[in-house]
Design a protein around this nucleic acid. Structure first.
Lengths: 111, 111
DNA sequence: GCTATATATCGATACTTGCCAATATAGATA
DNA sequence: TATCTATATTGGCAAGTATCGATATATAGC
């Protein structure tokens, strides 16, 4: 799956409980939730988020108990959704959270 | 999919960005996100949430543009996840949001 | 260039899920 | 009881996805 626009672009900035979402906003917001809706991917995201300076991809395979290709796949989904950033450092790639992406989702589900 | 425990039972009450989720918490929390991760279901939820007294199921089929069984299916998923409540009133069934369920998810993704 | 290592992509498979048509269930009313 | 209506369930199909082994790409160091 690929999300073309960043979650921060979601037009609606009001809680989902305040006014019914239009179709387009629902598609964008649901895409963010879907990314976080897989347990392995959510743990992966939380592992990255738990370290302030981000995480090397090399440190994420073992704690997840999944193969390297599988972790790489989930990292790609997280990156393309705009939830994490990616930076190459020499041979390694460092992932870090994009706080503003999470914040927009948080605002929407706050009553 | 069926979620046996309510989202409010999720053990962890800290943001996912603060400490890495353990496996069990990730499974529970991801289940909530997965429920909201379908655009039709998210719109359905937002339709119910937008009316303070809840919504009759009979008023939810037409605006979603899906068949009655499909809407019924999504309502079941929402109910079993603990995100909405259900009450029979005569021939009709009224759905309303359970605010505390959303709140727990909101806390977890707040930075 | 050659080798070693870190990450990504490919291809295949098993499982999940969103959807609808048909049917069942349950309450209301006569 | 019979009938009408609102909602739920069943069955099946098509599309999506999580997973892994094998392979490709890219960087570092020699």
């Amino acid at each position: 799956m690929s999300i073309m626009t960043s979650p921060t672009d979601v037009a609606c900035c009001r809680p989902v409980t305040e006014a019914a979402l239009d179709d387009a906003s629902a598609i964008q917001l649901a895409a963010v939730f879907a990314v976080l809706g897989d347990p392995v991917r959510l743990r992966l995201f939380s592992l990255i988020a738990s370290l302030p300076d981000g995480s090397c991809a090399c440190d994420l395979v073992e704690p997840l108990g999944r193969s390297q290709p599988t972790v790489s796949h989930h990292l790609k989904v997280l990156f393309e959704s705009g939830l994490v950033d990616r930076e190459r450092r020499g041979r390694w790639i460092w992932y870090s959270v994009r706080p503003e992406a999470l914040a927009s989702a948080s605002i929407l589900i706050t009553c």
